[in-house]
Design a protein around this nucleic acid. Sequence first.
DNA 1: TATGAATGAGAATTCATTCAT
DNA 2: GATGAATGAATTCTCATTCAT
Lengths: 187, 187, 187, 187
Amino acid sequence: MFAQHGYDGTIMDGVAKQCDVNKASIYYHHKDKATLYENVLTTLLNPIVDTVIKAVEAESDPVKKLHVHIKTFANSSARNPDFASILMREMASGGVSMPSRAREQMLRILFQLNLTLQLGEEQGIFKPSNPLIVHFMIIGTINLFIASIPFRNTPPKIDACNQLHNTNIDAASEQVCETIISSLLIH
Amino acid sequence: MFAQHGYDGTIMDGVAKQCDVNKASIYYHHKDKATLYENVLTTLLNPIVDTVIKAVEAESDPVKKLHVHIKTFANSSARNPDFASILMREMASGGVSMPSRAREQMLRILFQLNLTLQLGEEQGIFKPSNPLIVHFMIIGTINLFIASIPFRNTPPKIDACNQLHNTNIDAASEQVCETIISSLLIH
Amino acid sequence: MFAQHGYDGTIMDGVAKQCDVNKASIYYHHKDKATLYENVLTTLLNPIVDTVIKAVEAESDPVKKLHVHIKTFANSSARNPDFASILMREMASGGVSMPSRAREQMLRILFQLNLTLQLGEEQGIFKPSNPLIVHFMIIGTINLFIASIPFRNTPPKIDACNQLHNTNIDAASEQVCETIISSLLIH
Amino acid sequence: MFAQHGYDGTIMDGVAKQCDVNKASIYYHHKDKATLYENVLTTLLNPIVDTVIKAVEAESDPVKKLHVHIKTFANSSARNPDFASILMREMASGGVSMPSRAREQMLRILFQLNLTLQLGEEQGIFKPSNPLIVHFMIIGTINLFIASIPFRNTPPKIDACNQLHNTNIDAASEQVCETIISSLLIH
DNA sequence: TATGAATGAGAATTCATTCAT
DNA sequence: GATGAATGAATTCTCATTCAT
């Protein structure tokens, strides 16, 4: 519900009903709405970040690392569309209110990407680049793609205007990979 | 305030105080909160979209069109950071609650991009591509870059980890251009 | 309601109904329950304290000052039985949570009494005494007398056991005067 | 906690934590909050009242009886400051909600005082007086003195204004004795 | 007896909206 | 058009009490 309606748009009564528990029970386990949100966020973020990091570390070749980085992030996000929504909302707020625990997790991904890009540069494979922008390109594109699924399915279907209707996350993330990697590679 | 706190997080009392007008005056001029939001959105969106479309139409070469498309969008957004935030929130909500007037404006940009890409393909300059993904890549990346400015300026400064600190919207949009265009070009 | 049920026992819904106003209106004029309480207290206390001080200052003879002090305090309290109740509650809480504005008012009465007693001593009329205890004797007795009216009227009527039933505040305060003054006078 | 925060201000969760027991355990031993309060009150009141009555009955001279009455009451209260607070609160509420068991105990003290005063009158030692007012004078003053200890210790220290700082319960009760007895005695 | 976890009925506070002037 | 003051309908949070174990 936080993903769909945002923090302020999420109503504790609704959460309780959705979970089929008494509202007071929520407060028994979570100090208040803000804490609940923080806990939800942590629970959501940690596994995704861990998965990405682990997958990237398992590879040694920078190109493969980058490829795995993008694909794993995309797949994890796709399996948890709420993640994309929440991340976009947090970014929209300037991330100012983002719980620091969540913030730190997101930074881990950026740092990992940074390592990969530096490795590529050192090996003479990648051109120099700005990791932050590459990072934003990846998560901005993927998040938008995932979060916009309902939007794209709302009439008038924009996919219907041409061949777009078959686009899925695999194709999208593959295109992101190609685009980014090809732009980084030294031919 | 809608940009910073979202629709639900925006409080009419706060709006009145911020604008230094009486709350009832707002209701005199705008039917209700939803209408106010719609009006704000329209006022914000229309000039940006118009600017982009006009700039693109002024060019004839597909590569230049695409370049101008991205740069104009980026510059307009950068001048109106609220635009990026609102767009991200709307996307995060699945765009479900997005006023249809605003929705249509955003589609105009996508259609314009579609035209440009098709033109490029017809002229044998561009590889076939999925316009939707290109669209998301552009606005996802740019929006994220702009919306995240406050986040990046909040300690611990992530830009501080390396050379990132000089990154501005011009450099970022240029990199987006290069990346996207180079991936589209038939070498 | 604060007097009768105490701060915690007073319910904002009840206050609103009692005053026949909408609950939200109360919050429009008073930040929150605590502030409302503070305002109520100030409104209640100030006139009583002012009346006492003014009446005492109008006399010059220490005995008359003391007499007027007690009688005026008793009459003011009797006209505002809530004052006694609230004061007793505040004292019961150790006055810890007592708004400082109210606290200061109460101290003004003590200081005035102190002046009177010192004057009497200087003139060789009064024995030395502890003003604080005299103060407590006055307000403790009077407050208790007033606050206990409902208690005494609740069956079994304790007044019924003997001639007590005719006791009113005038008689009571007169007895307090006699007792205190006679114990202070140098025969 | 009942003494400090009153019945409504006392929270069962807090009681449990303070006692380091599980909240449900309290309900195992005490039917509900009201019963718990009643039990607490009885446990608190009975020994004090018994002590006073017993001490008074041990004397035969009316003056000594009265002296012992006041001193014993003062000492007992001083050893149990909660007693003063609770009594003051109950009086502030008009004693309406006071459990009848507790009410009866308090009446026993009044009746005992009544006996003493009548004895004194019969022996031609005491002037006629209103026992209720004497009663209030005693407990009003003593309770207030005790309950106000924290208040007086809160800056700005009112005791600091003059010689008041050494006042203790013994001195205070002695002054109450002198005052009341001297006003009753037929010279 | 003891306890962690409910839960229903409040109670404080907020907020979009309206009203009277 | 503007404004101070309502107001009803939420919404967050609390609290006495109970349940299951």
